[in-house]
Design a protein around this nucleic acid. Structure first.
Lengths: 114, 114
DNA sequence: GTAACTACTTACCACTTTGTAACTGGTTAC
DNA sequence: GTAACCAGTTACAAAGTGGTAAGTAGTTAC
């Protein structure tokens, strides 16, 4: 038996790899952090807000949708708009996203201080 | 003012990017999860345990050392061995690593169940 | 001296990921 | 018709990432 405050698994690193397989790349967690923390966005809004080019954004959104982390809704507006939202399942990533945001904030402070 | 249970920042995603900049790629979090959760390892041990080739492992360890997340110690053993350990600063990543491990475990369950 | 073990490093190649720019197709406003 | 806006897609190029195999260098065992 191990310390049950720690994760109890022989191959802890394989679970890390499973997670990375789903949220790999430079952008997926960035997109999810926006949709999860700030809510629904349209395609163009997401592109401008995150700085991701349409080509990449389109592909990342497809992959996130395939993994059931976001949902896509076409709206009958004047020019057709498309809304992307995080799903319930994406909410389970909140812990990961939150931890990374906090670490990033702290790390920036640390770097500035040096 | 925002809900202070959430992260309060306009550009939440920039902090995610800061974090990803440090722990980018396929392997850095895998290496850190081993060193943080399971303790000091030698070069060869790390390579075998994680399945990372010497070339990549060497480069990743350099980068982690530059970011002060791991420390390197040369030991005066029969053939010289080198020990890598996580630093105090790497402990601050425990929240991120733990969250990713738990999500990976849960995700694997979910996928299996489908 | 030769083989074996440690910890890397180098050369080379392949695949993946990302980016830029331009273009498609549909609708609305003038 | 022309311009403008939306949501993408396509073509192409550049950069990043990863892998294999072999080599270096130091020490030990035979």
């Amino acid at each position: 038996m191990k310390d049950n405050l720690d994760v109890e698994c022989e191959n802890v690193h394989s679970f890390i790899q499973d997670t990375l397989y789903v949220v790999n790349g430079k952008w997926k967690l960035v997109i999810l952090s926006i949709l999860v923390n700030k809510g629904t966005r349209r395609f163009g809004e997401l592109s401008r807000e995150s700085g991701i080019s349409p080509r990449i954004l389109s592909r990342e959104l497809h992959e996130l949708e395939m993994n059931q982390l976001i949902s896509r809704r076409v709206c009958n507006t004047k020019p057709v708009t498309v809304e992307y939202s995080s799903t319930e399942y994406a909410e389970t990533l909140k812990e990961v996203i939150g931890a990374m945001i906090r670490w990033g904030q702290n790390h920036r402070k640390k770097i500035k201080g040096q």
